[in-house]
């Protein structure tokens, strides 16, 4: 009896202590998200909002070619960004975990420093690097690798991919690094003793065990990049614009917030579905070794 009472009191204390933060999240996130969903079923009537429930916004969001194009492009660019970021990051995480013995913390710190500089300015600097008279073109012309400035590197989807792969690098490296650090090194020795070469050992032991980190990195990079609108605006040109730019326009200049809300909800649903598929696929791949 006393024990149960004790537990109840503990539970009450915990809940009480958590309540301000939980209350804040409820009031400022849960309620607003519910409101956005409700809003997406309403209609903008010039300056007023018509609160009759309707699916018109969704019909428009899913059937108008412009929104479809932007939605698929966002998803495609984000998936390419994610793939590039994770593939580029994996060897670095592997190097840090398996080959760096001293000053690991310093390496990790150095990896995160560029991420803490102003995001806007960082994206803008890529424009400076990739532009027609940019740093890269000037350097390549100087060395004589090219005769005319390259134009395919700025104001298109490639530039968006490169810039975002740069911006999200630490978010991919850290989870993979943590997963690699957790691998029991004796398992690798065991694989070797049982006759696995370095490649087989990597594919059959290291990679499956690193899978949780890889999946975490994939989701951490994929989800926010779908919603980015700075990078597409600054380096994407018209070919690189993404769905978030359209959401921003609907809430701003176009003054059709309900349609913007419908676009936001639609993109969240799509991203959530894709994330779930990746998560389940990763779980299956990672589960094999258990």
């Amino acid at each position: 009896m006393r024990m149960r009472l004790g537990l109840d009191r503990e539970a009450r204390r915990g809940l009480l202590l958590l309540s301000p933060t939980a209350g804040y999240a409820l009031l400022m996130l849960a309620a607003p998200l519910v409101m956005v969903v409700t809003f997406s079923f309403w209609t903008q009537d010039y300056l007023d909002i018509d609160t009759t429930l309707t699916l018109n916004n969704y019909r428009e969001a899913w059937s108008e070619p412009i929104y479809r194009v932007l939605m698929f492009r966002s998803l495609r660019i984000s998936l390419i960004v994610t793939l590039a970021t994770v593939l580029l990051a994996f060897p670095v995480a592997y190097f840090l975990s398996f080959h760096v013995t001293q000053r690991k913390a310093l390496w990790l710190f150095l990896i995160t420093v560029p991420f803490w500089t102003s995001y806007l300015i960082r994206v803008f600097l890529w424009k400076v690097i990739l532009g027609f008279n940019g740093v890269l073109n000037t350097a390549l012309l100087e060395v004589g690798f090219i005769e005319k400035p390259l134009t395919f590197i700025l104001y298109n989807a490639n530039a968006v991919v490169l810039t975002l792969a740069h911006a999200w690098a630490p978010f991919a490296i850290l989870p993979i690094f943590v997963a690699l650090e957790k691998i029991d090194r004796s398992l690798l020795e065991a694989a070797e003793d049982l006759g696995d070469g370095p490649l087989r050992r990597f594919v059959r032991v290291t990679l499956p065990l690193a899978m949780p980190g890889v999946i975490a990195a994939t989701l951490i990079v994929l989800i926010p990049t779908v919603g980015d609108f700075i990078t597409p605006r600054l380096v994407g040109g018209t070919e690189g614009l993404m769905i978030a730019n359209m959401i921003q326009v609907q809430f701003g200049k176009a003054n059709n917030a309900p349609l913007g809300a419908a676009l936001a909800v639609s993109s969240m649903v799509i991203v959530a579905a894709v994330s779930l598929v990746i998560y389940l696929a990763g779980k299956k791949l990672g589960g094999k070794v258990e």
């Binding site: 999240a25 996130l29 607003p32 409101m35 909002i49």
Partner: peptide
């Protein structure tokens, strides 16, 4: 749920707060 904003695109957080403020 409290940790959710960590993985939510910022534009969603922004829109979610903007809608009630407008309303």
């Amino acid at each position: 749920f409290i940790m959710l904003p960590l993985v939510l695109p910022e534009i969603i957080v922004a829109v979610a707060l903007l809608v009630p403020i407008m309303q």
